[in-house]
């Protein structure tokens, strides 16, 4: 008689499709033990596939159901689930695609998958209060260059060598899918969650580099220096950040105390 530990190892071998003998521990009345065990094997595979398909809907649509299922099969072999929380199973899919598809015409799918994972993460990131543009206008003009902006925890910044945002947008809803030129060059994407839901915004290279520096905690002045953002682009970039509800807090330099009013107060 198998002890509980040996039994779970034997059962697990059957679930993985490794060599096993279900008849040794499961009864075969009416239906063979192996056929009964296969129901669990199919269910485990299906649950895994469905979790991946829910997160990577655009990747799936781009490659079709059959190839997606194949990719998931190889992914699951390389990265079996390590969590009882199904939301976690797709975490390493972009990394897997990056190596599995390296050198193939499909290698760009890794970057699309990274965008979809960012969207998934942004959807469940911690809530944060949102700062309004008025918070910045309350800072003395001479001190604005030293201001730091704390961005919302849901913010994810992605730089892709192919137009992943264009692909992502082209594959939303039920309308006809426009053809996307994958040679159209890189795209820089800001993903975050506002009160209206997850937002995706494309950015120019310098604007993107500016937001990366701000997200890292640099002052506005340092972020401009680092990113090479043209001065005339500063106001629109800041306005977009605030209007998109991507700023959680305006942190003025120590010598320039903040005005008391400055937060719209609703979490995103």
């Amino acid at each position: 008689m198998l002890g509980l530990l040996e039994l779970q190892h034997a059962f697990a071998a059957g679930l993985r499709g490794a060599p096993h003998d279900a008849d040794a521990w499961a009864a075969s009345d009416r239906v063979p033990a192996e056929a009964r065990l296969s129901l669990y094997r199919i269910n485990a595979r299906t649950v895994f596939e469905q979790a991946l398909a829910a997160t990577y809907a655009v990747v799936r649509e781009r490659v079709g159901d059959d190839y997606f299922r194949q990719l998931v099969h190889f992914y699951r072999r390389a990265h079996p689930s390590r969590s009882g929380d199904l939301h976690e199973v797709g975490r390493r899919f972009p990394e897997f695609l990056s190596s599995h598809l390296a050198g193939t015409p499909y290698s760009w799918l890794a970057e699309l998958a990274a965008l979809e994972w960012a969207v998934a993460e942004a959807g469940v990131a911690p809530d944060a209060a949102v700062a309004s543009l008025r918070s910045l206008s309350g800072v003395p003009p001479a001190a604005v260059a030293g201001v730091r902006l704390r961005l919302v925890p849901s913010l994810r910044l992605l730089s892709a060598s192919v137009p992943v945002l264009t692909v992502w947008r082209a594959n939303q809803g039920d309308s006809a899918r426009p053809v996307v030129d994958l040679d159209a060059g890189p795209e820089f994407v800001q993903v975050h969650r506002s009160a209206a839901g997850v937002q995706l915004r494309g950015a120019q290279a310098a604007e993107f580099a500016f937001v990366i520096a701000i997200a890292r905690g640099e002052s506005i002045e340092a972020a401009i220096d680092e990113s090479g953002l043209p001065v005339d682009r500063l106001a629109p970039v800041l306005r977009d950040l605030f209007e998109d509800e991507a700023v959680a807090e305006v942190v003025a330099p120590a010598a320039a105390p903040m005005p008391s009013q400055g937060c719209t107060g609703h979490p995103t």
């Binding site: 779970q8 649950v47 390590r82 199973v89």
Partner: peptide, 25 residues
């Protein structure tokens, strides 16, 4: 139920045998 072994999760509600050992565990 059980659902994981050696760090691998099957994300399913897998049955336990109805034994005294399983009761204790």
């Amino acid at each position: 139920c059980w659902g994981h072994v050696d760090g691998e999760h099957f994300n399913d509600l897998l049955p336990l045998p109805f034994t005294e050992e399983a009761v204790r565990h």
